[in-house]
């Protein structure tokens, strides 16, 4: 085993151990409030579960992994609070945790497997996350319209699967079609620096992860004729932001 591999193994043991401890601590604190939430009406309960998920995510990314992993959040539009559709690049399995840095009420569109996880899946189902593998287009659009009206934003990773490197894969069009039809604001966002945090074998090294939320884009304002044109323009905005962050050589 090389020095780098040994170092990675030690960092991974430390980080997974720390995340486990923080998760246990979080659960102990939240168990009674979560049980109480079950007695609230559905809409209120869902909102509460979503808040707990975001709080848990922030606990992990700003607490449990610090100082080996430092997460920096930059908001290019701090005064903009309108709920919308957040479009992220997808490099790593840590992305769904990192979106908690946004600090806004949100749900995520996920592939089927996270919904089936014994612990996280329960919370995702309670928070009415969208399972992209099971939800029909019309049902997803109706659900998203309702969420936006309630002030809840929607996070999507239109690449569908993590790239595991700095490359951005092709985007799927579904969420852009919904944004176009609802004329919902789109926030181009990026996560940079976590392409190997963890790597495809779920091992960590130390590092800095930067998350950036861009200015919202209204689909009608950029005169996109269809979902393909809209996704191409949003992807270009994200790619520009990523290039700027990476050129700063802070990573």
């Amino acid at each position: 085993m090389s020095i780098v591999q040994r170092q990675k193994a030690l960092i991974s043991i430390w980080l997974y151990g720390s995340m486990l401890l923080w998760t246990v601590g979080f659960c102990l604190i939240m168990v009674i409030p979560c049980l109480m939430m079950l007695f609230f009406p559905a809409q209120r309960r869902e909102a509460m579960f979503r808040r707990v998920i975001v709080l848990y995510g922030r606990t992990i990314i700003f607490g449990a992994v610090w100082p080996l992993l430092r997460v920096k959040y930059e908001d290019r539009a701090p005064t903009e609070k309108t709920p919308g559709i957040y479009i992220f690049n997808h490099r790593s399995s840590s992305d769904p945790f990192l979106v908690a840095a946004l600090g806004v009420p949100l749900i995520q569109i996920v592939n089927g497997w996270p919904m089936k996880l014994p612990f996280f899946g329960y919370f995702a189902r309670q928070g009415r996350y969208i399972d992209a593998t099971k939800t029909e287009y019309e049902a997803a659009r109706k659900h998203i319209r309702g969420l936006l009206k309630e002030g809840v934003s929607v996070v999507a990773f239109p690449e569908g699967t993590r790239s595991g490197n700095r490359k951005m894969n092709q985007f799927h069009s579904g969420i852009f079609r919904i944004a176009l039809e609802l004329n919902a604001p789109i926030y181009p966002c990026c996560i940079v620096g976590n392409e190997e945090l963890p790597d495809l074998n779920f091992r960590f090294r130390s590092g800095v992860i930067r998350i950036c939320r861009g200015h919202p884009v209204m689909p009608t304002n950029i005169a996109a004729a269809n979902a393909f044109v809209l996704k191409t323009r949003i992807k270009a905005l994200i790619a520009t932001e990523i290039a700027e962050i990476e050129s700063e050589k802070k990573l």
Binding site: Q170, H172, S173, G174, R177, N226, A227, F228
Partner: peptide
């Protein structure tokens, strides 16, 4: 169509 030009099944409908 998908990997090089970026069209998915929904874009194919368009």
């Amino acid at each position: 169509i998908f990997n090089d030009l970026g069209l998915d099944s929904l874009d194919m409908v368009d």
